[in-house]
């Protein structure tokens, strides 16, 4: 009994402390090792950047966390709970969100309706044949979210008519719907102009403190501005961990990124 209590207590403590714990997670596709023996912990509210070249295993890492692919070995814990065997939507209910490299939006609908559906998806009334009233809770949160991602002016435009950068911003709004606790951003800055990049950095920096995120980013400038800690991946393994300055000044990282000739 006491043992049970102790384990429950430790579970509770770790639940408060860690948003995500990966325990020797591996992922093989046949003979190809996409990810090997990854140990990673992300604290609640922590903002973490994952860097690495193409094929380093970053997106595979995300898929293992969200449950899009299950890992070949190892355990995944979300907010202290083992979710290794849970399907994707169960993890989403626990507060996990992700954005995709390619925007998966609803192109025939207005901006506000995209976000509204995302807010409604986690609550009741999905089959309602009545139009949402203006003080509808999901509609209210949707209005707030488009403000957070700077899309208020585009509220009634069709998504198909938005610029690439605006679509990425909308993608973030969809990820913020509900009560997210940990968001996985998969290259949110890909294909953005310098101006759009600074808007993105602003949005990420202004997110509420209790929401942690992991961001995959090729652009070092963006990654180092929005992250408190950095994980470098290489060939499916974790290569280096540290704070942004450490990583930026690390000789091995520079070799990896710029080629050994520059050192």
């Amino acid at each position: 009994m006491a043992g049970l209590q102790a384990s429950a207590l430790s579970k509770l403590q770790s639940a408060g402390r860690y948003a995500l714990e990966l325990e020797s997670v591996s992922c093989h596709f046949g003979a190809l090792v996409a990810m090997a023996d990854i140990n990673l912990t992300v604290e609640s509210g922590e903002r973490r950047a994952v860097l690495g070249s193409n094929g380093a295993g970053k997106t595979t890492l995300f898929n293992a966390i969200t449950g899009d692919f299950s890992p070949t070995a190892g355990r995944v814990r979300l907010f202290g709970e083992d979710v290794t065997d849970l399907p994707s939507h169960e993890r989403i209910r626990r507060g996990l969100r992700r954005t995709y490299q390619i925007s998966l939006l609803f192109h025939g609908l207005k901006v506000i309706d995209n976000v509204f559906l995302a807010c409604r998806g986690i609550s009741r009334g999905r089959f309602s044949l009545r139009r949402p009233v203006s003080d509808d809770s999901a509609m209210e949160s949707a209005e707030n979210l488009i403000e957070v991602v700077h899309l208020t002016d585009e509220r009634d435009r069709l998504v198909a008519n938005l610029s690439h950068g605006q679509q990425r911003q909308l993608e973030i709004a969809l990820a913020l719907a509900g009560a997210p606790r940990l968001i996985l951003f998969d290259e949110p800055a890909a294909g953005l102009s310098p101006t759009e990049r600074s808007v993105l950095v602003e949005i990420l920096q202004s997110m509420p403190e209790h929401i942690g995120y992991i961001i995959i980013e090729h652009d070092m400038d963006v990654a180092l501005q929005v992250a408190q800690s950095v994980t470098m991946m290489h060939n499916g393994r974790i290569f280096k961990e540290g704070n942004p300055e450490e990583i930026e000044n690390d000789v091995e990282v520079q070799q990896l990124y710029l080629g050994s000739g520059h050192v």
């Binding site: 192109h107 025939g108 559906l117 998806g121 999905r126 089959f127 009545r130």
Partner: peptide, 26 residues
């Protein structure tokens, strides 16, 4: 009327992107 209701909007969103709608909990 119903095309602008929650049900109608969700139906159009499913047309545009079923996979995303599923991951939103529909």
């Amino acid at each position: 009327y119903c095309s602008r209701s929650t049900f109608g909007l969700a139906l159009q969103a499913i047309r545009d992107n079923p996979r995303r709608m599923q991951s939103l909990g529909y």
